Simulated assay, not measured.
Amino acid sequence: MKFAVVVFPGTSCEVDTYNVIKNKLNENVEFVSHTSESLDKFDAILLPGGASYGDAVRPGAIANMQPVMKAVKKAAESGKLILGIGNGFQILLEAGLLPGALLKNKTLKFVCKPTLLKVENNDTVYTSAYEKGEQITIPIAHGKGNYFCEEATLEQLKANNQIIFTYTSENPNGSIENIAGITNKQGNVLGMMPHPERAVDTLFASIDGLKIFQSIVRNWRESHATNA
């Protein structure tokens, strides 16, 4: 399986994300520039966290206008796996690949700390290694992670089981319905504010994030073995 880690000016979590794929999963992975126009050779595309273009205008707004995003949208439409983490989630929202928006944290302060999440849906390519309802610890690091959407969109998210992770014990940013991560209706695009790439080693107090990446690889392999 081959992963792309897309890098924009201002991206800061690309090395952590790359290392998970390379050193924890032993899979092929490459950094891809924001100027790239094709992602055809990749099976999964990862949009890591940071502050692309300094979060000018809105987080993810300028990143969405870069050449690589046409390729990301093409990949999403073809069913390839797209994971956006932190700023990557913001970019996916700006691109219209996921519904809703991310507002300033309710406290108006940047928050960086471990958070307790609940796995709301484990029937996805990203969460099959978890148990439904499992509680996991994954850190957050953002100033604009307050997820919001209109009531009609929220009802659709619920009806289609698109709410994948929710904050439990506390809501650190004010997100509606405690939402921490969602997928598109097809289930191949996931956006989440918590950083699973920072929870893959006991040195960092949690390995709960590793199962997301393991789920991706396992489901991809099973799918391609079935189609072979």
Rank of each mutant, 00 (worst) to 15 (best):
V119D: 02
L83H: 03
E120R: 10
D55C: 07
P114Q: 07
L93K: 13
S52N: 11
G54L: 03
I85Y: 06
G86Y: 11
M69R: 08
G60F: 01
E120N: 09
K113G: 00
M65S: 09
L102D: 04
K118E: 14
V57M: 00
L47V: 11
P48G: 01
A75F: 01
N105Y: 05
D43F: 07
P114Y: 02
E77S: 14
T107L: 13
M69F: 04
L103R: 12
P67R: 02
A76P: 00
K73C: 02
A76L: 00
L93Q: 10
A61K: 14
L97N: 12
L98K: 11
A61W: 15
K104V: 05
G49R: 09
P99H: 08
D123C: 08
Y53N: 01
I85H: 05
E120V: 10
N122L: 06
K41D: 15
A76T: 00
K80G: 10
E94S: 14
I85E: 06
T107H: 13
P67Y: 00
D55A: 08
K104N: 10
M65P: 00
E120T: 03
G54F: 01
G88K: 04
P59W: 00
E94C: 12
L46K: 08
Q66H: 06
K73P: 06
E77N: 15
N64Q: 10
G49P: 05
D40C: 03
G84Q: 08
I45M: 12
A75M: 01
G100V: 06
P99M: 05
P59H: 01
M69D: 02
K118W: 07
A44W: 04
L39E: 07
D123A: 12
S78R: 15
T115L: 02
A71F: 14
E77A: 13
G50P: 13
L46R: 13
T107N: 15
G54H: 00
